[in-house]
Design a protein around this nucleic acid. Sequence first.
RNA 1: UGGGGCGUCGCCAAGUGGUUAAGGCACCGGGUUUUGAUCCCGGCAUCGGAGGUUCGAAUCCUCCCGCCCCAGCCA
Length: 553
Amino acid sequence: MTDPDKPINFIQQVINHDLESGLVDRVITRFPPEPNGYLHIGHAKSICVNFGLAEQYAGGCNLRFDDTNPEKEDEEYVNAIIDDVRWLGFQWQGDICYASDYFDQLYSWAKYLITQGKAYICELNSEDMRAFRGTLTEPGKNSPFRERPALESLNLLEEMKTGQIDEGRMTLRAKIDMASPNINMRDPVMYRIKKMAHQRTGELWNIYPSYDFAHGQEDAIEGVSHSICTLEFAANRPLYEWFVDNLPLPSQPRQYEFGRLNLNYTVTSKRKLKQLVDESYVEGWDDPRMPTISGLRRRGVSPQAIRSFCDSLAVAKTDGVVDMAQFEHFIRDDLNTNASRAMCVINPLLVTLTNYGADKSERFVVAGHPNRDDLADRNLPFGHQIYIDRNDFSEDISLSRKKFKRLVIGDYVRLRSAYIIRADDLIKDDSGEITEIIGSIVDDTVGKDAPEGIRPRGVIHWVSATDCADCTVKIYDRLFNKAAPDADEESFLEHINPNSLTLIEGCKAELGLANASAGDHYQFEREGYFTRDSKSDSLVFNCTIGLRDNWKI
RNA sequence: UGGGGCGUCGCCAAGUGGUUAAGGCACCGGGUUUUGAUCCCGGCAUCGGAGGUUCGAAUCCUCCCGCCCCAGCCA
């Protein structure tokens, strides 16, 4: 799994050092999502880093829900996250962990800190607390409650816990340093009152621990050796360490930060993705245009493509924006080697083959993949009438064969895996639209080179007009038409691409496709990669991504 | 502005005093091809800036410039 040629990243350097020095004997990491939304491609990187490290070092990785704020969290998200991690192919160590499982322990550690004179109940309201905190350039001022006797704080904390104090009236704060240049160290809140039921602990608690008071201790309880998070938590590290140093923890985890993944032409912020869902800009968290794991899955992106992409990313401290094209490369790369080939005519144009009897028919057995015989062969019916794509025919006979490698009247083209045909005539309706092409086959050309004197202009796909499956195809474009939708002042919503979804009905697919199921990947030859939509009962295919298209006029 | 972090090709990114400054994506040429796909060949940077140390610097020092994060009882 580990690429020997891939350079060692800075976290691996730290781990190697910790292992050699004996500081650590087993590498334990963790992926700690808050269940307040669905996982997205950015989380995938974190998942790959954490589970990947555990795998490389034969350690373990925990899946732990950081459920310390019932206000934003929901069981729906918990289940979706579990599904996504599993779908990506990762297995966590032991049982799933929850911060809420540690609420009792956290609470007793809070009391311990009060006893040590290192925490106190503060009655400043949020507005005053902000004022007392100072600013980036000015130090803060001590809370008037800072020196309150430990016993008093202990009693008040108990009252907070049991619901005797109103929300917002009090907090438990760590007594650190109101003059610290690091604002996170200016007596941060450890517990706040939230008289709210928690999806796992119910009505048991009226107070909930803050992220800072919970995270490092959760890591310590679980024996996490390397707690890897994203760059924005770097300023919280001194606080993380302060709790680790001042509490009688079972282990001393260390925090390391790396740059989170950013992709252009999309947003990776749970808050923004939730807004897109809540305000119906998309159909849901799993809308195929969403950069969520579930959206990518429904779109037809494979777990392996996501993992390959994530593995291609550097674990470093630079915060860059990765080009969507890089992700697309890995999607195509995976699909090209794994997707079965098939034919589907998206804009059907009827072709009647005059020299192929209406009562005649054949079946061609065709490979499912050009270089993989483990993928099942296909059975393609052929007959008197077929469909080709309207884009594969042109009335302009002046187009050079180099410029237009498709069908024109009087010239030949190869039907993929079938006959060479010639277009002889066309029929139009009253409005001037072409309704039918009249053509003919060249005998004995299936699976054989073109006979002397006949040079097909190119190869086009087709489907039997009588033996095919009607289907709908959904083509997606980027959700935003600006590379950095959330870069400037105006809302990212201003940059939503109004044409991100194109629905095309009346497409004609080769017969076998009628049995496709969601999760199967196909390459519709000359078009792109598709998968059956998991949310539709009828035959609907989502375009995962188009084939690369290099030709220019 | 106080603190923390980061600046190597259009994008991502190796590089830890001596290399022709990896690799991938994108792009541009050319070849193969019953998918204008795939595949194959080839092209593509002097390292944010200015000084300095050194026989020698992307790598060390100094100053400057730019970008990101922190002033939620969010995570």
